[in-house]
Amino acid sequence: MFDEQLAGFKGDEQCIRVVGHRGARGIMPENTLLGFEWTIKMGVSALEFDVMITKDSVPVIVHNHHLNRDITRTPQGDWLNAPEPRISDLTYEQLSQFDVGGLNIFTEYGQRFPEQIFMSGQKVPQLADLLRLINRPEFRHVRLMLEIKSDPHVPDHRDRQAQTVEAIVNVVRAHNVQARTVLHSFDWEMLRMCQIEAPEMPTSFLSQLPEEEATAGSDPASAFDAYVGTLPSVPQAVADAGGYIWAPYFKDVTEHDVAHAKQLGLLISPWTVNDPHDMVRMIDLGVDAIVTDYPARLQREMIKKQVRWQRTEENTNAALTSA
């Protein structure tokens, strides 16, 4: 079941999948159509990105529940000042007025990605925009790890969860990419809703232990906190909840957990792995896929370890053939 959707995230002894995080955030403006297209063209066939809905229920690709001032400029070209408007308070027309094509290098977040190019004219895309992109004939091999975001601070949180799932699933179905999409979230309650609303798509369960702090410029993974302390084993809990992929924060991954997850039939896709030493550790642990801001950096480490990121039978220019 779900063989087609999971194929892009399933590794083996000689293959680990490269998953572009927010496209390739280390070098391209994050969660932009420009960044996604560039990432695919460099040989990455799986994308991980974040989706939530606007005030008028349009699914959009953006990470934080509010516009991040470190990557957002006004129509006049000025960096956004506080207060940062919440996505749930903006219509898509209002949201589309902002430019998210560059980093403010004078901020802590901006200094995290010194190699990222600076562009102008990049708007927060609708989910539908990305789906049209991957439906181009040359991109029909691309798989999606679609992270559904919930906002616990909205007054009607439970209703908003259901509206978000429904709106996202409707757009995925409208573009007929269910067979290439995995639904992915820290909010395990929303994943249960996904399993009911969209049984034709597998679910991927994100986790992060609470002792790990949120990084600059990012909302914390608070949706998962409610489950910590009640779980004897995170992989077991994912399997019990009907998940097919376990997506842990890479610092939380142990050899024992990887072995346990594999025994349970889960795929393992740690995030967000950017340092070469951490990449090598994940490769040596034998995970199925690695989510990274630096796909080219990960590809180089895999070449050194003689590991492919595509199977030999797959028709892609990025395939690595053994000597």
Rank of each mutant, 00 (worst) to 15 (best):
H157Q: 12
R86W: 15
T32Q: 07
E93N: 12
R73I: 03
E108M: 08
N31D: 04
R158S: 12
I105A: 05
K41I: 05
L95G: 10
Q161H: 12
V58G: 05
H63Q: 10
G35V: 00
V44P: 00
V62M: 04
L146P: 10
M52S: 08
N81T: 15
P83K: 13
F98P: 04
P29I: 01
P125E: 00
I53P: 03
H66E: 15
I105E: 03
V44K: 00
H63F: 07
I117Q: 07
L80S: 09
I105C: 02
S57I: 01
G121I: 08
E37F: 04
Y92F: 15
H157K: 07
D151V: 01
Q94C: 12
L144R: 00
D78C: 13
I71H: 02
K55V: 08
L33N: 00
H63S: 06
S150Y: 04
Q163D: 15
Y109C: 11
D50K: 08
P29V: 06
P75V: 01
D78N: 14
V60N: 00
V51N: 00
N31L: 12
D159Q: 14
D89F: 10
V60S: 01
H153I: 01
N135F: 11
M28R: 15
A162C: 07
V124Q: 09
E48V: 08
N68S: 08
Q161G: 01
D129M: 07
P114F: 03
I40S: 01
I71F: 03
G110C: 09
L95N: 07
V142E: 03
V62L: 07
W38P: 01
H141P: 04
D50M: 09
W79H: 14
I105M: 11
R143F: 09
S45H: 15
D156S: 04
W38E: 09
V100D: 06
G43D: 14
G35K: 03
N135C: 14
K55W: 01
Q76P: 09
I71T: 12
L80C: 11
F98S: 13
E138C: 08
T72F: 01
A46T: 13
R132D: 15
I40R: 01
E93G: 13
Q94W: 09
H141T: 02
E138F: 06
A128M: 04
S120G: 10
A46N: 08
G77S: 09
T107P: 12
T32I: 06
P125S: 13
W38R: 15
A46H: 02
A128K: 12
R112T: 11
H63E: 13
S45D: 12
P29A: 02
A82E: 15
N31F: 03
I105N: 03
T107V: 03
I27T: 04
D159F: 07
M28E: 11
Y92W: 14
Q126K: 15
K149A: 00
L103G: 00
T32D: 00
G26D: 08
N31S: 11
